[in-house]
Structures are given as structure tokens and as C-alpha cells.
Amino acid sequence: MTGENNLLEVKDLKVAFNMRQGDVTAVNGVSFQLQRGKVLGVVGESGSGKSVSARTLLRIEAPGKITSGEINFCSPRHGEVALQKMNTTGELIRSIRWKEIAMIFQEPMTSFGPMHTFGNQITEVLILHDKLNKADALQKAIESLRSVGMPRPEKVITQYPHQISGGQRQRAMIAMALACNPEILIADEPTTALDVSTEAQILEVLAERQRTLNTSILYISHNLGVVANIADEVMVMYLGKVVEHAPVSELFSSPKHPYTIALLNSIPKIDKVYNGQRLEVLTGCIPDPYNHPAGCKFHPRCPKAMKGICEQTEPIQQAISDNRSVACHLYTSSINTNR
């Protein structure tokens, strides 16, 4: 794996779903690296392949299938392993799941089993991975709940999911995800279903964990504001592809890809005087997943689409500086020689 600090490296990953109406390539050649102790934000509209990419890291992408690409993970216990080659029900991937790569899921309402207490569901991972006995696991579960700011954790471990609120449930989910001190924490829109103040508290918990334990976080969101808060680097996805990858400050100060620019423009700004002018919106919607446009997948919605180029060839992701890359013909110098 290139780079000392790389914990995870994804190369040209493709994940497809066999649907009755045809194949859908939900992740279509995604590459990125996640460094130790860093937060990588993943941004995109619904259907851009963010969640599927994240699930694939844990190999719970089914019914999707990896059709090509590599996922190399620097496992503290197994050395460098190729996750894409693993049997999804095998011993090896199960020992990595939750212990080394854990995930916070999007729906706090349904991500816990309804018939078991929080104590049961949280201690389960501690007993399984850390080989704790029941009493120790329960103690650790209480500590873990307390560390994410859950009030009265001793009570919560005896409660069932339907007995506490969505925000508290998401806290319990985070406590469970952090219980085994994973190397990588995947947070798949963890605050989408929550109110703003709970969101802020949860972001603070995650940021603190990243600071104190050097946990790497893959933070998936469609909310650019949240990502600006927490991420070191941002990856913008559109229709299963990474269109732009940049350090967070640069992405916000000088976005390159028209899609990123459009996303940023669609956020109301507090210091801008609108004078009755309408907020810019991204026109059109995500194309039919069974029938992607030819060439650049964004060209039908792109305000800067160049006729004869953008609908013909698909731009490849190219580095435009040391730590930035973008997939757009506007920044492709070699476009004319290619044609």
C-alpha cells in the first residue's frame, strides 16, 4: 500500500446489482485512501453510491456484487489484507467486522433488533470480539454508553429500542460502534434522522473520538455543512463515481467540478444579500439508474457542458495538485489530443 499512514486503500472499485430490470452499477470505479486518524467526508445525492461503497468495505454489500477493483486494508491483527477477495461469510471478514471496521447506520429507528435489550446487543460485540465475560462486557457497555453522552446508561442497557427516542438510539448505536475501539469508523449519514442540536452533540462525540484515539472516520453525508465541520478531506460522488476529491478547506474555497459548485451554490449563505433573488438550485435529477447518460454522467445537468466533448467521452479522475483531483473535461488538458 502506498503511503505510511494509509489504513485503507480503495482502487477502482465497482459494485453492481443484478436487478430484474437489468444491471445497476451503483459504484462505478471509486478510488480513495483513508489515512490513520483522518476524517474523510463523502458527499453526494441519494443514489450516488456513497452508502454502497461504505457497505462494501465491510463486505455487507449483498445483494450487490463487487465486479472489479481492490480494497486493501491494513489490519492490525492480520496485516495487509485484500477485503475484496474475502468470503463474505468467512471467519476472516467476521473478525474484521466491528472489531477493526465498525459502522454507524443511517436509521436509528431500525438498526437495533426490536426484541433484545441494548445491553444484550452491545455486549454481544464485546463478548464476540474482545472475549469478555458477561459481567465485564456489561460494564464496558455502560462505559461506552456514558462516553457518548447517554444519560443513565445503567438503565438504558436494560431497555429495549422502542423505549427510547431516536436521538438516544443513535447514541446507543455510536456507543456500540465504538465499543470495540475500531481502527475505522464508517458513519453513514448518522445524523440525518435527528434534530440539529442532537446532530451537533453527536458530531462532537465523533470528533473527540478521532482526536483522542486516532480513529479514522469515513463520514458519509448529503449535508455539506456537516462535512465542513468534521472532515479533513472531502470526496464528492455522483452516480457511482468520484467527481472531486480535495482537502476540506480547498473544496469549500475553490470548488472545481461544476457539480460541486452547484451543490455549494444551493446552500443558502448567511452573509449574502439575496434581494429577492432566488437560491440557485441544481437543475434536473439523478438519471435513471438503468440508463446512464453517455460521456460525462453529469453533462445533462451541467451548466458548463461543452458540446462535442462532454456527451462523447467520460472524463477520468486526474490530479490537479498534490492533494486534489477532479474528473471533468474543463480541467483535462489532454482532451484535444485524445480526440
Partner: peptide
């Protein structure tokens, strides 16, 4: 098809164990 089954799978439980513990029970 529910989310909590995926959660259980992501936790590294054995497939037969997680199926019997969570969705079958429900």
C-alpha cells in the same frame, strides 16, 4: 430485509446465529 439484520451482520456474527437470534425471533 430490515436494517437490524444488516447491523447484526456488520457486527461479525455468524450468519446462522444472527438469523436465529434476530429476524427469526421477530
Amino acid at each position: 430485509g430490515k436494517q437490524y439484520v444488516t447491523t447484526a451482520r456488520a457486527k461479525g456474527l455468524r450468519e446462522s446465529k444472527l438469523i436465529n437470534k434476530y429476524p427469526v425471533r421477530a
